[in-house]
């Protein structure tokens, strides 16, 4: 059985420890993972900006990278959302590619979906004694339907007090190239998100997508706010290590 990591370009280049945490968690359940080296980026930046030719090239690389995989797991709801929601649109006039797209769609999972729905695990035996608030990223939440999974996982973490984030499902304002094209607007949106995060008085902000966390964390840091920003995979892995100390 080939179980593959879709690392996502952002976690590959900027946040490798997030992908590593995901790998180490799955390793604990005896899940052997492979990393198809051919992978690059899912193509979302180009797709969302309207550059579909470039997006198709990236998508074809992604599709080819995982042709031999039985399961594909990514630490991002947005990239998996791209595959599940937009790849069929990108190749709607190409039956041969559509067949491949369908094959990839049904075997690709966001990290928490894989844990909860495939492995059937919600309690990792982790301990993380902090006040935590969770930001549900839009694409994971709306395109992919990742709703309860992270809450189920967090609810079993010992010592972790989950504080509800006000207006949690409101967008953080990232939006890919939107954040630089209409930077003032994106800046206003992330400022609002940061204000909501601050209201919780949480010590840790957790999420499932590093792009959104890069945006919110970047604003928190810009404003000199001392809140730790983590991907849920990092939190869980750190929590498992802590429990075993």
């Amino acid at each position: 059985m080939n179980i593959s990591i879709l690392v996502t370009c952002l976690c590959d280049a900027i946040y490798p420890h997030v992908a590593e945490s995901m790998v180490r968690i799955l390793h604990r359940y005896g899940i052997p993972l492979d990393f198809p080296e051919m992978q690059t980026c899912c193509g979302q930046p180009a797709f969302n900006s309207g550059y579909w030719e470039e997006a198709r090239v990236a998508a074809m690389t992604t599709i080819a990278s995982f042709e031999d995989s039985d399961f594909v797991i990514a630490p991002s709801g947005s990239c998996v959302g791209m595959i599940r929601h937009h790849y069929p649109t990108l190749f709607k006039e190409d039956q041969e590619m559509l067949r491949k797209v369908n094959a990839l769609m049904e075997k690709t999972y966001e990290f928490t979906q894989f844990l909860v729905h495939v492995l059937g695990i919600t309690d990792l035996g982790a301990t993380f004694p902090y006040n935590v608030t969770y930001h549900p990223s839009c694409h994971g939440n709306r395109l992919l339907g990742v709703k309860d999974e992270p809450y189920q996982l967090l609810s079993h973490v010992k010592g972790c007090k989950l504080i509800p984030l006000p207006f949690a499902t409101d967008c953080c304002g990232f939006g890919g190239t939107f954040s630089v094209k209409l930077s003032d607007l994106s800046g206003a949106m992330v400022q609002e998100k940061v204000e909501h995060v601050m209201e919780t008085e949480a010590e840790v902000l957790v999420g499932l997508d590093m792009a959104c966390l890069m945006n919110i964390g970047g604003r928190l840091s810009h404003e000199g706010k001392n809140i730790r920003v983590m991907h849920l995979a990092e939190l869980l892995y750190e929590g498992v290590k802590r429990a075993n100390e």
Partner: peptide, 21 residues
């Protein structure tokens, strides 16, 4: 500039995931 006016930008990791895989 459009990013850093409002946020701190992260840096590339010293070793990418594929480099450390």
């Amino acid at each position: 500039k459009n990013w850093t006016t409002y946020r701190v930008a992260p840096t590339f990791a010293q070793r990418s995931f594929r480099e450390s895989w």
